[in-house]
Design a protein around this nucleic acid. Structure first.
Length: 778
DNA sequence: GTTAGGG
DNA sequence: CCCTAAC
């Protein structure tokens, strides 16, 4: 509560003369005190005197409540103070103040039209609150068709596509269709996805027994009509996800055959693993797709080894370095595949955040998010893997030029503005890393053994099912109903801070896969017969296994926890010739212990796909959110909401004004209001950032003053309430004590009673005068 | 989970 | 925008 301001002003636009309900503090403590007082009044009934007091007290309290209720009843949030179009127009004026008059006019007309049309739109936010302001998403509400401020005199009926929780934002302005890449195992289909991943398009990816641990099995992964490329078992050096729409009904399987029939545990012939081909529905190899595989010349051939495909170059290098170091020092060596690179990258991102923003703003392409009304039907039999789709407004797919750079650790995700449209978010994923793996094997083991061990570890991981986690600025994006734009995954956002993390599927056999995860492969039943992954904190595998009959132990630490960002790194410590593992596994000290780590020490579980995060090369460290300055239109909406709801009800403000803007939390709104108040109080030349129209700032001042006054008033009332309660309690307590005072003369009792009464009355009167004085002051 | 406030 | 205390 900002009690500092005593500059009380009234009569700002939108102010309806009352505040809707008590502040949190009053709702909480006040009521609590009240309850206490009422409880305290639970006294012997034979005390007529007390009953009288209690009755009076009750009446007093009721009177108070009645006042409050009457006051609250005056609040009519549903009565629009400003029509949507007027809000829009006003916002536009401020937003496009520098634009031409005609442009403004056109926008206004468009907005008016749009507001008229609001109820007929199925992709608009359903706002049940009745507030007459609403910012649906983070798109500028004043931009064209994205009419975000709308009248809500009555709830806009949600259409079928909106039959989901209001938080889901599926607004799609264009006819864009998001296709998805569908994966499932033939033997064990992936549970139908229940989120936006499903689409009407049927694209099935058949995976004939992804070689979880069994290298003998042939793996056939297919997906349909994907434009993206998953290089080599989804661990590409350079992978670009492009999203195509609309769905076609052809199957364009990506074939990844693992044709190895090797039986020898430690002899891995990589060639036998990766046979990747893209086919269309007719079985023809799609040249187009292979042509996408630029930048991974070294790895995209069918001769690429699986380990190589599973480990990025850097991780492989670190792996090798680790081995090397191990030989030299005979100690555990940890390598972080992404350490330096990601660190540098992160710094670049931090430093370049603004420039990036500016770049994209000035940039040629302004993206507009298209989100598809994916059926949430769990019965949808296509197990879709949404990879996102880039489409034009007309739904035609966008083809982007593949970057020719083959730099492994270059910016893993790049925005590739290729078309003059406002629709698409184009991502290029350049590398994945496998999760942190730990392999322990005897020094006598051969390199082939090591390769095999790593292979099995990776396969075990894959066998358990992998999920894709989307990270933004190091933070997991958990709400999959968020649009890319809302999530900040747009050209306007920080695409270079976007990351993908593979992590073991926490629900490998579950039918209802967590919406948060995208299952890349799913053959949970395919447990390793020999070398399951030791996966800490994971439900996938928890055992440790011997490698071979007499080869010592192979331990693979997938370092995987389905959800925790916290590292579950098992740091094997050698003591007395033994390596104690946290699971209780004891590894003979003679084992060479190689820790393969694609991450920094406190890396999240699973594997980082993209190096990002500012420090330590860890994606888990950079938890700071992207700075997304409020636009003038957002400020407008915020101001209006606060005018209506007041300060101190930020959750309501959020729900009413920014229901769909996931990136605007009520804390953000509160902070923004704070800065707005501050901004309004300083000289214009001291202000920074996008200038807020003075008119808005004036409203901020007015609203702030008013609500501050209201809160002070409310507090006074509460204080008075508390004094009433205190008075009654004192009186009643005194009475009780008085009645039970043994051997006291009636005159003495009367004296005590008189004193108590007069004392209480004095306190009451004193407090009353204070309240009155405050009221006058207000 | 919300709110308020400092940083 | 983050963090924390208080509720």
């Amino acid at each position: 509560m900002e009690a500092r301001s005593r500059n009380f002003g009234f009569g700002f636009p939108g102010y309806d003369g009352c505040f809707p309900k008590a502040t949190r503090s009053s709702r909480g403590r006040g009521d609590h005190t009240m309850r206490k007082s009422l409880e305290a009044s639970d006294l012997p009934k034979e005390m007529c005197f007390f009953e009288l007091l209690a009755t009076v007290a009750g009446q007093l309290l009721q009177e108070q409540d009645g006042e409050a209720l009457a006051s609250r009843s005056l609040v009519d949030l549903k009565a629009p103070k400003m029509s949507a179009s007027s809000v829009l127009a006003s916002g536009m004026r401020s937003c496009h103040a520098k634009g031409s008059e005609t442009a403004i006019k056109a926008k206004e007309e468009e907005a008016t039209e749009a507001s008229k049309d609001l109820r007929n739109r199925s992709d608009k936010c359903y706002e049940p609150s009745g507030a007459n302001f609403c910012l649906h998403d983070n798109s500028d509400p004043l931009h064209g068709k994205n009419v975000d401020v709308k009248p809500l005199e009555e709830p806009i009926k949600a259409y079928s596509s909106r039959k989901r929780k209001p938080s889901g934002s599926m607004s799609c302005q264009g006819s864009a269709v998001v296709s998805s890449i569908n994966w499932h195992t033939k033997t064990q289909p992936i549970a139908p996805r229940s989120d936006q991943c499903t689409s009407k398009g049927k694209g099935d990816c058949h995976e004939d027994a992804i070689p979880g641990h069994s290298v003998d099995k042939k793996e056939t992964i297919s997906w349909n009509k994907q434009e993206g490329v998953v290089d080599q078992l989804c661990i590409p050096q350079c992978q670009e996800i492009d999203l195509l729409a609309p769905f076609q009904d052809i199957e364009s399987p990506l074939l990844v055959s693992s044709g190895s029939s090797e039986e020898t545990p430690f002899s891995l012939e990589p060639k036998s693993y990766s046979t990747v081909a893209f086919e269309n529905g007719q079985g023809e190899v799609r040249e187009e797709i292979s042509s996408w595989k630029v930048g991974d010349d070294d790895d995209n051939s069918s001769e690429s080894t699986v380990p190589k495909s599973l480990l990025t170059k850097s991780s492989s290098m670190s792996y090798n370095r680790a081995m090397k170091a191990r030989r030299c020092t005979n100690s555990t060596v940890r390598r972080r595949g992404l350490g330096v690179g990601s660190k540098r990258k992160c710094h670049e991102m931090e430093d370049g955040e603004r420039s990036q923003n500016e770049k994209s703003r000035s940039g040629k392409v302004k993206n507009k998010m298209c989100k598809l009304p994916f059926p949430k039907d769990d019965n949808e039999q296509s197990h879709n893997l949404p990879m996102g789709i880039l489409v034009d407004d007309d739904g035609s797919p966008i083809h982007c030029e593949r970057e020719k750079s083959s730099s492994v650790m270059s910016s893993p995700i790049t925005a590739s503005p290729t078309k003059q449209d406002d629709t698409n978010v184009k991502l290029s994923i350049k590398s994945f890393l496998v999760p942190e793996l730990m392999v322990a094997l005897p020094e006598s083991a051969t390199v082939a053994n090591l390769k095999k061990a790593v292979m099995d570890a990776a396969m075990s991981l894959l066998g358990g099912g992998l999920c894709v986690r989307v990270l933004l600025q190091g933070k997991k994006v958990t709400d999959e109903t968020e649009s890319l734009l809302e999530a900040g995954i747009s050209d306007g956002g920080k695409l270079d801070s976007l990351g993908f993390m593979l992590e073991p599927n926490p629900f490998p056999a579950s039918a209802g896969v967590d919406d948060t995860f995208l299952v890349l492969s799913h053959n949970a039943n395919q447990t390793s017969s020999r070398y399951p992954v030791v996966s800490k904190g994971s439900e996938i595998n928890t055992g440790s296994y011997h490698v071979g009959p007499s080869e010592g132990l192979l331990e693979i630490d997938a370092n995987s926890s389905g959800t925790e960002m916290q590292s579950t790194t098992v740091s094997p410590s050698k003591e007395d010739g033994l390596v104690h593992e946290s699971n209780g596994l004891v590894i003979p000290g003679s084992c060479a212990l190689v820790r393969h780590s694609g991450q920094a020490n406190n890396s999240p579980n699973g594997l980082a796909v993209v190096p990002f995060g500012p420090s330590a090369g860890s994606i888990g460290i950079n938890k700071r959110r992207i700075r997304r300055p409020f636009s003038v239109s957002e400020v407008e909406v915020l101001v209006q909401a606060v005018e209506k709801l007041g300060t101190g009800r930020w959750r309501d403000v959020k729900l009413h004004a920014f229901p769909q803007a996931k990136h605007r939390t009520y804390v953000d709104l509160k902070d923004k209001w704070k800065t707005l108040v501050h901004t309004a109080s300083i000289a214009p030349h001291q202000r920074r950032g996008e200038p807020v129209p003075q008119g808005l700032l004036d409203r901020v001042i007015q609203a702030h003053s008013y609500w501050t006054a209201q809160q002070a008033k409310q507090q006074s009332m509460e204080t008075k309430d508390s004094w009433i309660v205190s008075l009654l309690t004192t009186i009643l307590t005194t009475v009780i004590n008085w009645r039970h005072l043994p051997g006291m003369e009636g005159q003495q009792k009367q004296s005590i009673r008189d004193r108590a009464t007069s004392k209480s009355r004095k306190r009451w009167e004193t407090e009353d005068s204070i309240v009155s004085a405050k009221r006058v002051a207000l």
